[in-house]
Design a protein around this nucleic acid. Structure first.
Ligand SMILES: [Zn+2]
Ligand SMILES: [Zn+2]
Length: 650
DNA sequence: AGCACGCCGACT
DNA sequence: GTCGGCGTGCTC
C-alpha cells in the first residue's frame, strides 16, 4: 500500500511512502525518511501499489494507530494554506499535537461548588431563542460587561449537546481561569476538553484524544482550541471577539475567528461571537447583515454604568492629577478598591505639543509619526513619509513641543508619596509570566481589601472582576492613542470601555478617571458620553476614506537578516518584484503601501524591513503575494515572514 | 527547511 | 595543494 504524506516543511506537496496494510491509515502521523533525515508527516491518502517514476521509501513506523485528525480538519488546513500562504504540512504540524504519549497527569480537577440555577432575563431568553431557532447562522451577542453573555453561550451549548452535536468555546487566554474551567467542567459533567498554549505536548495529546474518542462534548480554550478535532460541531462560541490574542503571533499567523468561520461553514455550525466592544470588522459585518446582532443592554447582576471624567493633563505637573487624587482619597476613605491603569509604555517615543496635546500624524495614513533620534526626523512607518522635526505645533502653533509619556516607576513613587498609609501593589503581565502564585495572592488580597490600590497594565483591565472596585484611574490614555497604528483609536476605545465595565461591574457608584493630553479625542469622548454607535460610524468613515480595513485587506511581509546590507537589498528587490507583478496582473485594487525599516528595526540581532500591501479584493492581494514570493529567490540568509491581515506592525 | 554537491578564493 | 565560503538543487 502507498501513503501520501504531508511533511512539516515549506513544501506544498505530498510525498509517497510504502507501508504494510494495516500499519497506518488516513489521519495518522507517520515517521518517515526524507533525504538523510527522519520526519513526522501526516497521512492524507492511502492507495494501492502502483508504478511511479520516482523511488518509493518505506514508512519507518506509524505514530498513531487510529486517526488523529479528520478530513474536515485537513480541508481547513488546505484552506488555511491558501489564505495564510504557508504549506499544508506546516499548518498541520501547527494544529495537531506533537506529543507521542499521553500525559499521565489528570486532565484537571473540578472543585465542587454551589452554582445557583440562574433565571434568564427577557433579553437573554430572546437572544437564546434566536440562536436555537436558527442553526447554522452567525450571531453577535453585543452586550455590556455583566449583561450575562456567558449564560446565553452555555444554554446554547447545552441545547446543541442535547441534539448530539459538539461545541467549541473560545475564550481569551487571560480569562481562561481555573474558576471558569471548574464551572464548565461541572456543568458539562466532565465531558470537557481543554486546549491552550500552556499545555505540554503530551497533555495536549491527552485532551485531543478525549475529543477524538468521543469523551468530550465541549472543547474550551484559547486560540488553538479552534482546531478541536470534533467531527460534528453544532456551535462555535468566540467570547470577547475583539481580543487580539485570537491572532497567532507566529507563522502561520492565523486568526481564530477566520478559522472558526471556515469550520462553521464546513460543519454547518452555528457561530456565536460576543463582546461589549466589537472589532470594526465585526461591527461592519453586523451592519451589512452578514451576522445577526443580538443586544444585551441590561446588567443582570445589577450595577450601573460607571461615571467617566476626563482630566486634561496639560495643566498638571504630576502623573496623578488633582482630580484623580481627590477621587482616590474619597475611595480610600470609603474603603473601596482603586485600580490605577497604566498602559505598557509604547515601543516608540512620540512627540507632542505641550500646549494642546496634538501628536503629528502622517498626511497619507493619519497614523502617529514616530520620532527618529538619529536623523532628527518624524517618520511614517506605513508609507515612509518623513519630515524634519517640526518646531511648532501644526494645530495651535505653539513652539513648546517635547517627547511625552511616563513610566510605571514614577506613578508608583508618586502614589506612595500622596497616599503614604495606603497599601499599594503592582500587577502586570510581566510579573504574571514569572510568578503565578504571587499574582494570585495579589488578586486575592485586593479582593479581601488587604490591598487598597492596585497598579497594573492590560491584565487588570481584562477578565478580572472585583466587587470592591469603585474607581479606575487611567493614568495616560495617550499611550495607546499614540501607537503608530491605524487601529489606535479602536484599541483605545475598546480598552477604556472595558475598563469602564470593570468599574461598574457590581456597583452603582463606579467611577473612571481618564487622564490625557488629548481631551478632544473621539475614542475618549465616546466612552465618557456613551456615544458608542457614533464612534463606530465615525471610525468606519475614516477607515473608508483612508483605505484601511475593514474596507480593504492588508498583508505585511517582514524580511529579517543578521546582515543589514542584505536585508535592505532584499527588501528593495522584493519591493520592485511586487510592483512588477502588480502592474502585470492588471489588478487595480492592489498596491504596495510602503517599504520601510520596521518600527523595531533590530530585534534579536536581526535587522528588519517591512513591506505593507493593500487590496480591496482578497483573492487579488493573496495571488500577488503568492506569485511574487514564488518568483523571488530568497537569499539563504534572509527570512521572510508573511502576515495576512496583520494586527500589529512592529 | 536541511543537507549535499560543486565551484572559486586565501590559507597551513 | 586543501579548507571553506555559500549559490543551486533535491528530498517520495
Ligand atoms: Zn498644539
Ligand atoms: Zn504614511
Amino acid at each position: 500500500m502507498l501513503a501520501e504524506v504531508y511533511l512539516p516543511l515549506p513544501l506544498n506537496q505530498t510525498y509517497t511512502y510504502r507501508f504494510k496494510e494495516g500499519e497506518t491509515q488516513f489521519g495518522c502521523r507517520v515517521s518517515v525518511p526524507f533525504g538523510k533525515r527522519k520526519l513526522t508527516g501526516f497521512v492524507v491518502n492511502v492507495k494501492e501499489d502502483q508504478e511511479t517514476d520516482f523511488e518509493i521509501k518505506e514508512i519507518i513506523k506509524s505514530v498513531d494507530k487510529t486517526p488523529i485528525f479528520t478530513s474536515e480538519l485537513l480541508d481547513t488546513a488546505k484552506w488555511m494554506s491558501k489564505v495564510y500562504i504557508a504549506s499544508v504540512g506546516q499548518i498541520l504540524s501547527m494544529m495537531i499535537p506533537s506529543g507521542r504519549r499521553e500525559s499521565e497527569s489528570a486532565l484537571f480537577s473540578a472543585e465542587e461548588s454551589f452554582t445557583p440555577i440562574k433565571m434568564l432575563s427577557e433579553e437573554q431568553q430572546s437572544a437564546l431563542d434566536e440562536i436555537n431557532n436558527n442553526p447554522g447562522e452567525t450571531f453577535y451577542l453585543y452586550g455590556v460587561t455583566g449583561s450575562g453573555k456567558s449564560e446565553v453561550y452555555l444554554r446554547a451549548a447545552e441545547e446543541v449537546i442535547r441534539q448530539g452535536r459538539k461545541v467549541i468555546y473560545l475564550v481569551p487566554e487571560i480569562t481562561l481561569t481555573h474558576q471558569l474551567l471548574s464551572d464548565i467542567s461541572l456543568r458539562f459533567s466532565n465531558r470537557v476538553a481543554l486546549l491552550h498554549s500552556a499545555l505540554t505536548p503530551s497533555q495536549r495529546l491527552k485532551h485531543w484524544h478525549k475529543i477524538i474518542n468521543g469523551e468530550a462534548d465541549i472543547a474550551i480554550g484559547a486560540r488553538s482550541a479552534v482546531f478541536a478535532p470534533f467531527k460534528d460541531v453544532g456551535l462555535i462560541i468566540i467570547d470577547e471577539e475583539h481580543e487580539n490574542s485570537y491572532k497567532s503571533g507566529q507563522t502561520p499567523r492565523y486568526h481564530a475567528r477566520q478559522v472558526a468561520q471556515k469550520r462553521a461553514v464546513n460543519m454547518h455550525s452555528t457561530l456565536v461571537m460576543g463582546s461589549a466592544t466589537p472589532s470594526l470588522e465585526a461591527y461592519l459585518s453586523m451592519k451589512k447583515g452578514a451576522m445577526k446582532r443580538l443586544d444585551l443592554k441590561t446588567k443582570v447582576a445589577g450595577g450601573a454604568e460607571a461615571k467617566v471624567k476626563i482630566v486634561n493633563m496639560l495643566k498638571e505637573s504630576r502623573t496623578i492629577s488633582k482630580e484623580l487624587e481627590e477621587e482616590i482619597r474619597s475611595a480610600l476613605h470609603d474603603r473601596a478598591g482603586v485600580i490605577l491603569f497604566l498602559n505598557r509604555r509604547g515601543y516608540t517615543n512620540y512627540y507632542h505639543c505641550n500646549s494642546c496635546g496634538h501628536v503629528e500624524e502622517c498626511p497619507n495614513c493619519s497614523i502617529a509619526l514616530t520620532y527618529h533620534k538619529s536623523s532628527e526626523r518624524m517618520v511614517c512607518h506605513y508609507c515612509g513619509y518623513s519630515t524634519p522635526l517640526v518646531s511648532h505645533c501644526s494645530k495651535c502653533g505653539s513652539h513648546d513641543m517635547s517627547v511625552a509619556g511616563f513610566g510605571t516607576e514614577r506613578v508608583e513613587e508618586e502614589a506612595g508619596k500622596l497616599f503614604p498609609s495606603a497599601r499599594i501593589a503592582r500587577l502586570d503581565t510581566d510579573v504574571a509570566s514569572g510568578d503565578k502564585e504571587k499574582v494570585k495572592k495579589t488578586i486575592e488580597d485586593f479582593k479581601k481589601g488587604e490591598i487598597d490600590i492596585l497598579l497594573g497594565t492590560q491584565m487588570v483591565a481584562k477578565g478580572l472582576n472585583f466587587p470592591r472596585l469603585r474607581l479606575v484611574g487611567v493614568i495616560l490614555a495617550d499611550s495607546t492613542l499614540s501607537v503608530p497604528d491605524f487601529r489606535s483609536e479602536e484599541r483605545t476605545f475598546s480598552l477604556l470601555e472595558q475598563v469602564k465595565g470593570r468599574a461598574g461591574r457590581y456597583r452603582d457608584d463606579g467611577r473612571v478617571v481618564i487622564q490625557t493630553y488629548r481631551v478632544d479625542d473621539n475614542a475618549i469622548k465616546a466612552v465618557r458620553d456613551q456615544k458608542v454607535a457614533e464612534f463606530y460610524e465615525n471610525e468606519l468613515e475614516i477607515r473608508k476614506s483612508l483605505g484601511f480595513p475593514p474596507f480593504t485587506r492588508l498583508v505585511a511581509l517582514t524580511l529579517r537578516s543578521r546582515n543589514e546590507d542584505s536585508v535592505r537589498k532584499a527588501s528593495d528587490e522584493l519591493y520592485l518584484l511586487l510592483e512588477r507583478v502588480i502592474s502585470k496582473s492588471g489588478y487595480s485594487d492592489v498596491y504596495v503601501i510602503g517599504k520601510n525599516p520596521c518600527i523595531i528595526y533590530k530585534k534579536a540581532s536581526n535587522f528588519r524591513y517591512q513591506i505593507l500591501l493593500s487590496g480591496e479584493n482578497f483573492i487579488h492581494l493573496n495571488t500577488i503575494v503568492k506569485v511574487s514570493l514564488e518568483r523571488y529567490h530568497t537569499p539563504s540568509n534572509i527570512y521572510i515572514e508573511i502576515d495576512v491581515d496583520p494586527l500589529s506592525l512592529l
